[in-house]
């Protein structure tokens, strides 16, 4: 292992002292090339006492060197302007347009529809406490629903990356005096592997309306207005009973599959419907914990998952694309 830390510090120095892109390229080949130092070390893994740990260390070292070289190449480029294409200013092009990210576009459409229904926006931290992420939403420590949400901890068990935007709801209920209506888009985290179809970062869109006589009809009518605003009057939604700890009665809602129109296909796994989210009348315990008297006030809360929706709308096949850096926009087209 001492050997590796020596290599690490030597590599760092080499990268640091390279001043032109040619020099940096030389260092790159020397360290990461096909006959480079790292390659040699990798082929020697099996002769190490603990090959697995050694391999992990090597991988980390390789990543680190890659990143350092990448970073460095930014600064040497400004020195010597290596790439001719970069240097070539074009004589004429159509105006280059700026673009919004598909998640922003979708959030804004929803924000606008909710604004017309008199909703504010709201916000909360991404590093949350167990209290606001779970307990104040009627999910005590040993509640069975905690199994479903494997959390990424910052400091176990107290601080974690929020697993749901309901934590914003918990803060809003505590901080504001009813009546209020607010919607809150946000990023959430679960401790899951990243694959083509699954991510550890999710985008949710959540909201609450608390007033004196809020009903399920208000909630259902609101979602239907929303879906019509987004998809036109022909949209077909389904509202059904579904348990969530923070609401009672609880509700799930689905849209008729945009691909098979209810007949059943691979996208909807034969169901004919696509799950859009959950909602319900805010649980009296949740209101009480926030200092709101459930005998006077009643509210609905809802949450939508945006990722699949955005992917379907923008024809994105791989969920990693949403945050992965290979999402781009045609420069001259809206």
């Amino acid at each position: 292992m001492d050997n590796l830390s020596k290599i690490q510090s030597e590599s760092k120095t080499k990268i640091k002292t390279a001043t032109t892109s040619a020099e940096l390229e030389k260092v790159h080949i020397e360290l990461l090339g096909r006959h480079g130092l790292l390659h040699k070390l990798f082929s020697d893994i099996k002769n190490q006492p603990d090959p697995k740990a050694y391999g992990q260390q090597l991988n980390r070292l390789k990543n680190e060197i890659e990143e350092l070289i990448n970073k460095k190449s930014l600064s040497v480029e400004t020195h010597d302007r290596a790439s001719p294409q970069k240097n070539n200013k074009t004589v004429f092009s159509l105006p280059k347009l700026g673009h919004l990210h598909p998640i922003t576009i979708t959030e804004r459409q929803l924000n606008e529809l909710f604004r017309k229904l008199g909703f504010s926006l709201y916000d909360g931290p991404e590093i949350e406490t167990d209290e606001y992420c779970f307990q104040r939403l009627n999910v005590p420590i040993d509640h069975p629903s905690r199994e479903m949400q494997d959390s990424i901890y910052i400091h176990e068990p107290e601080h974690l990356l929020r697993t749901q935007t309901s934590s914003i709801e918990a803060r809003l209920l505590t901080q504001e005096k009813p009546p209020f209506k607010a919607a809150f888009p946000g990023r959430t985290y679960r401790n899951e592997k990243v694959t083509k179809s699954n991510h550890f970062i999710f985008h949710q869109y959540q909201g609450v309306a608390v007033d004196k006589n809020i009903t399920l009809k208000d909630a259902i009518g609101t979602f239907n207005t929303l879906f019509k605003g987004l998809y036109g009057n022909d949209v077909h939604a389904r509202y059904r009973c579904k348990y969530y700890p923070e609401v009672e009665p609880g509700m799930g809602f689905d849209l008729e599959c945009f691909s098979c129109h209810g007949a059943g296909c691979s996208i909807c796994k034969g169901a004919g419907w696509i799950e859009m989210g959950g909602a319900g009348i805010i649980h009296p315990k949740v209101l009480t914990m926030a200092g709101i008297d459930p005998k006077i006030w009643r509210g609905f809360a809802f949450a939508l998952g945006l990722d699949r929706w955005v992917m379907a709308k923008f024809n994105i096949k791989d969920i990693r694309t949403l945050l992965g850096g290979n999402l781009a926009y045609k420069p001259n087209e809206p």
């Binding site: 229904l117 008199g118 504010s120 926006l121 399920l216 009809k217 208000d218 009518g221 207005t225 609905f300």
Partner: peptide, 16 residues
Amino acid sequence: IPTDQPVDPTPLPDIT
């Protein structure tokens, strides 16, 4: 439950 009546759209104080 009917689907055509959203929540009362009268704006409440802006808490954004």
